[in-house]
């Protein structure tokens, strides 16, 4: 694609933005390496801190051992189970509470009393309730994500435009048709807001729960390393949590964006310039006659993730 140089955007597009992100990450690592390798002790003390290379060595050691992958899959299984349960039950109760006055009266007070309790404070409850630690950890992960999903679903369902429902009613649609054709698709943007928050809180809680009561799992391993004063090991755990958390929330984000592509988007791009006009599209085959026009109109998705 050739571009008129005068019209080249000042801020680079996709590839450039990925480069900026990579540089930002590299700069943070470089600063960490610099502060720790020079044993800088200002007010913050970096002399005891493992360097990036220490952590990298510990990481490669871990990767070759069997425990790392067991920890990883254990933590992932726990969070995926808990999060999926929370997604399904959170959306279900959210819709129920928003659509039915009886459900709101029956469930509302109980839910509102439980909601402020931090999921991690439910560890004693989990220990009492569940026969195994494993189920307790999944329970805590579930509780963490459940309430954000529930609350955003409830709000999204209540905020639906009433004429959508009236339109389906006057087409002869019943309760299930309204649920499937209006309520769920219409609430999806809000639901994904809750899922994004939920996956983040889930990670916090699965790691904390593993630290307290786990056997295997990234949180358990990190705490073990701390108790035997293996600081590079602790950092390996933290990096692992960070990367896994990032990957899972990105997955949720991308899925959400994929499912809510119908949302109207502004063509305004903050601090950006209009993209250079595309070269004329070669005469389109007849069966896709309208596609090029609609794509040219489409505002570009400016979020990388």
């Amino acid at each position: 694609m050739t571009r008129d140089p005068r019209k080249a955007p000042r801020y680079p597009r996709r590839a450039g933005r990925f480069a900026v992100r990579a540089i930002s990450l590299a700069a943070a690592l470089g600063l960490w390496q610099l502060l720790t390798s020079q044993d800088i002790d200002l007010w913050l003390r970096f002399s005891q801190f493992p360097t990036v290379t220490d952590v990298a060595h510990a990481f490669t050691d871990r990767l070759s051992g069997p425990d790392y992958w067991t920890d990883l899959t254990d933590s992932l299984t726990r969070i995926i189970t808990g999060f999926l349960l929370a997604a399904v039950l959170g959306v279900a109760t959210g819709v129920l509470v928003a659509r039915s006055r009886l459900a709101e009266d029956l469930l509302g007070p109980v839910l509102e009393v439980i909601r402020p309790i931090p999921a991690i404070a439910l560890v004693p409850v989990a220990i009492l309730l569940f026969p195994s630690n494993e189920q307790g950890i999944v329970f805590i992960t579930f509780t963490a994500a459940y309430f954000p999903v529930l609350v955003s679903t409830r709000h999204a369902v209540r905020a639906l435009t009433p004429v959508w429902e009236e339109a389906v009613l006057t087409m002869g649609g019943g309760r299930w048709r309204i649920l499937g054709s209006v309520v769920l698709p219409g609430a999806l943007p809000g639901i994904f807001g809750g899922l994004s928050v939920g996956i983040g809180v889930s990670w916090i809680c699965v790691i904390s729960a593993e630290m307290i009561s786990g056997q295997y799992g990234v949180g358990y391993r990190t705490w073990q390393d701390y108790t035997v004063v293996n600081y590079p090991g602790v950092f390996v755990g933290m990096v692992t949590i960070g990367v896994l958390g990032w990957l899972t929330s990105t997955a949720v984000e991308l899925l959400g964006r994929r499912l809510t592509r119908w949302l109207p988007r502004t063509s305004y791009v903050p601090a950006g310039r209009p993209s250079a006009p595309r070269p004329p599209v070669p005469a389109p085959p007849a069966h896709v006659s309208e596609a090029p026009a609609s794509k040219a109109e489409e505002a570009r998705d400016e979020h990388l993730v």
Partner: peptide, 9 residues
């Protein structure tokens, strides 16, 4: 309806 009653998705 007067307003947009088409389902936007």
């Amino acid at each position: 309806f007067q307003e947009d009653a088409l389902l936007p998705w």
